[in-house]
Design a protein around this nucleic acid. Structure first.
Lengths: 249, 249
DNA sequence: CCATTTTTTGCAAGTTCTTGCTGTTTTCAA
DNA sequence: TTGAAAACAGCAAGAACTTGCAAAAAATGG
């Protein structure tokens, strides 16, 4: 078995299960534990996965809990939010998903900007209600306990009746090849409906989450119109996204 | 189980419940208390959570203490909530409106009681989501800025399709002659739809609000099945409600 | 095709990390 | 103040990691 094949297998396993044990890999690949260890070490250096004591985890795995108190990430998210509110204009009707980045957007909306916002996220709705000139319409349905996010047929049905100016997707994992991915099937359904309901789709992503892949696919990059990161639009890290018809902000 | 996985689990728990006990973590993770202690210590040093004697808490941004400061009123509301949760039984499907009294009910629901709850109140939905065994379905629609309560045709439409076991109305003004009254026309519409959708209607009211009347009428007392106050059911203050076919609790 | 170099792989010795246990000290609440 | 629970420090067994090395495999070059 070639080294490349092993690397690919390891990455697949990591993305599928969010984590792997070196012992399991050694057994299923029929190579010594040392070889696996070296493979994982390389992949770690290539930033393809995260090596931990006893195994490896995918990048997405550790970061999807809400506010991880990481002040560094937080400041990146605020930068993204600042760029995002610049895209908004008076009187627009928009859709917002959940996630901490979208929370920052909700907080940063100018106090006198009047908007109509549809959202299935409890936290975002709560934050938007602080703005007297923003009309907030909650897309009701079954709520997910951890994400505090509405999913299910009711949400999708309501979205099917909408045609809004813009859709702002906060969380999610982004990769130039695999597109936009998620780990929760129900959330995928809602996000796809959101994209269908909007004329333009805007993705917010901290650079750490670029090139990370999850189990299920939301959409291809061709369906996205704008990508907002905390980086300068000319940053080389974004090069792999340039072939697509994307506005980089 | 990898250390990283334990860390993630602990953070999830902390964010979810806002505080956890080391003993509980030790049991659910099947590791010794020392290991959990060490984990929490690391997470504390990483500023991911706050270690306290016996457990850990999140320094969460959601310290929304919607307590109205009035500790006296608060204790009455807790008494009402205690009586109200006694009315609930396993597997029921219920409707809950908003208000601080209903918030207390939401908090006091036993951890292992499984229910399905529909609500148009953001705060109540948020509180209910702390209970793993409660399925929460939000009745989406236009949100009122102060009350954080959904109103409008969408809510009424959704309610028209429901037939639930019980409806718990929190806020409101009550009078033996004028019935249940409100000052917000939109809220009236929703509450009427809620009463129509339920087999039984339960009203929660602190005694201060008895014999008070507002501009618009929600319903007559004849449509109400149970009235819960903080008073003893035999209290003379409730005499004027006895002529009606009401269960006083 | 063969000899040399480079890369890869497995192994062994030694080090570090993890974890549960012990005994002791500290903290908390009655 | 006192007793129980929690936190801490140190220790030991085992697992995981590192390093260096040598054999095997692959690539290179004449």
């Amino acid at each position: 078995m070639l080294k490349e094949e092993r690397h690919k297998y390891i990455l697949d396993q990591v993305h599928l299960h969010h984590r792997v044990l070196l012992n399991d890999l050694s057994e299923s690949l029929n190579v010594s534990i040392d070889t696996v260890r070296r493979d994982v070490k390389e992949l770690h250096q290539d930033k393809k996965l995260k090596k931990v004591h006893g195994g490896a985890t995918s990048f997405g795995f550790m970061t999807f809990s809400k506010d991880d108190g990481n002040i560094y990430l937080q400041s990146k998210k605020i930068q993204i939010a600042e760029k995002t509110v610049d895209l908004l204009s008076e009187g627009q009707v928009i859709l917002m998903s959940g996630g901490t980045t979208n929370m920052e957007v909700a907080k940063l909306i100018p106090k006198k900007l009047s908007l109509t916002v549809f959202t299935p996220s409890l936290h975002v709705a709560m934050a938007l209600l602080e703005h007297k000139d923003v009309e907030v319409i909650f897309l009701g349905g079954k709520l997910l306990h951890e994400a505090k996010f509405a999913v299910g047929g009711t949400v999708v049905n309501m979205l099917a009746q909408l045609r809004v100016d813009m859709c702002i997707l906060g969380t999610g994992y982004l990769d130039p090849v695999y597109g936009l991915t998620e780990f929760d099937w129900e959330v995928i359904q809602v996000k796809q409906a959101m994209i269908r309901a909007a004329k333009k789709t805007v993705i917010l992503s901290v650079s750490d989450k670029l090139h990370s892949v999850q189990k299920y696919k939301t959409c291809d990059l061709t369906e996205v119109h704008t990508l907002v990161t905390e980086l300068d639009p000319k940053d080389p890290l974004l090069d792999s996204f340039r072939p697509y018809d994307l506005k980089l902000v």
